[in-house]
Computed example of a mutant assay.
Amino acid sequence: MRTLKRSTEWRTGLGDFSDCLLAGLLVALASVPVVTAAPAFVAGCRVLDRTRHDIGSPLWTTFWADFREAARGGVPFGLGCLAAVVLFAVDLEVVASMPGAGVLRPALWLLAVAGVVVAVRTCEVAATGGSAWRRSFVTAARETGAAPGKGLLLAVAAGVAALLVWMLPILALVVAGPLALAAVATGGRR
């Protein structure tokens, strides 16, 4: 009897892991036009939140429905995130030529990490809270400031995802799934 129960738990865990990787692959596919990365991540967060709570139908169909719904307001947010990344890259170049670059560069990186955490949290709030993007952004910024421990966990998850992609670039196809799961798990709205 115990062996049968362990076998079932193992298969359930493997199914959850495969759902997470499939969500990452779907997020990567939907993010090919770069401005749709935020709505794709929102859809990934939604399907993984439903999977986590055993709600809903097959992941493939619900992902595309959630993506279409999130894309309505998410493209401007994605453009804003893209503009922030470009601004960060320009700032890094400018800071490198300034006196005091040794102090300014780490401060700029900390600001970038905080921005990434708020952006990922915004997508998670938009996915699980169902609110508009502007309200999701305000809620995400407030939650990140109110619960720095959860923000730190999310920053570590984003850092590990970036490290994995840096070490093995092909993982960029699936790493959004575990990052979306980390965002949903640290959100705690349900």
Score class of each variant (00 low, 15 high):
T3C: 02
L4P: 02
L4M: 04
R6S: 13
S7T: 09
E9K: 12
R11A: 14
L14N: 04
L14S: 07
L14Q: 10
G15Y: 06
G15H: 11
D16Q: 05
D16S: 08
D16Y: 05
C20G: 03
L21V: 02
L21C: 00
L22G: 01
A23Y: 00
A23I: 01
A23W: 00
G24D: 02
L25H: 02
L26G: 04
L26N: 02
L26W: 04
V27A: 01
L29I: 14
A30Q: 07
S31R: 09
S31L: 13
V32R: 02
P33V: 06
V34H: 10
A38H: 09
P39C: 15
P39E: 14
A40R: 07
A40H: 12
F41A: 05
F41V: 00
V42G: 08
G44K: 04
R46P: 08
R46L: 08
R46G: 03
V47M: 07
V47H: 04
V47N: 02
V47S: 06
R50Q: 13
T51I: 05
H53M: 10
S57L: 12
P58R: 15
L59N: 11
W60S: 03
T61K: 14
T61P: 00
T62W: 02
F63Y: 09
F63V: 10
F63T: 05
W64R: 03
F67N: 01
E69M: 04
A71V: 03
R72C: 07
G73A: 12
G73N: 05
G74H: 12
G74T: 08
V75P: 01
V75M: 09
F77V: 13
L79M: 15
G80T: 10
G80M: 09
V86E: 06
V86R: 03
L87F: 12
F88D: 03
A89I: 08
V90G: 11
D91C: 14
D91H: 08
A96G: 05
P99N: 08
G100E: 03
A101W: 08
R105F: 03
A107K: 06
L108Y: 04
W109E: 07
W109M: 09
V113F: 01
V113M: 08
V113D: 04
A114P: 00
G115Y: 01
V118G: 02
V118D: 00
V118F: 02
V120A: 15
T122R: 08
V125Y: 00
S131W: 07
F137V: 12
F137D: 00
V138F: 13
T139C: 11
A140R: 02
A141P: 06
A141K: 10
E143I: 03
E143M: 14
T144C: 12
P148T: 06
G151D: 07
A155G: 12
A158D: 12
G159K: 13
G159T: 13
V160P: 06
A161H: 04
A162E: 07
A162T: 13
A162N: 06
L163P: 11
V165I: 15
V165G: 07
M167Y: 11
M167R: 15
P169F: 11
P169W: 09
P169N: 08
I170T: 10
L171H: 01
A172M: 12
A172P: 01
A172L: 14
L173K: 01
V175S: 10
A176D: 04
L179W: 01
L179H: 05
A180C: 13
L181H: 04
A183I: 02
V184I: 07
V184N: 05
A185L: 14
T186I: 00
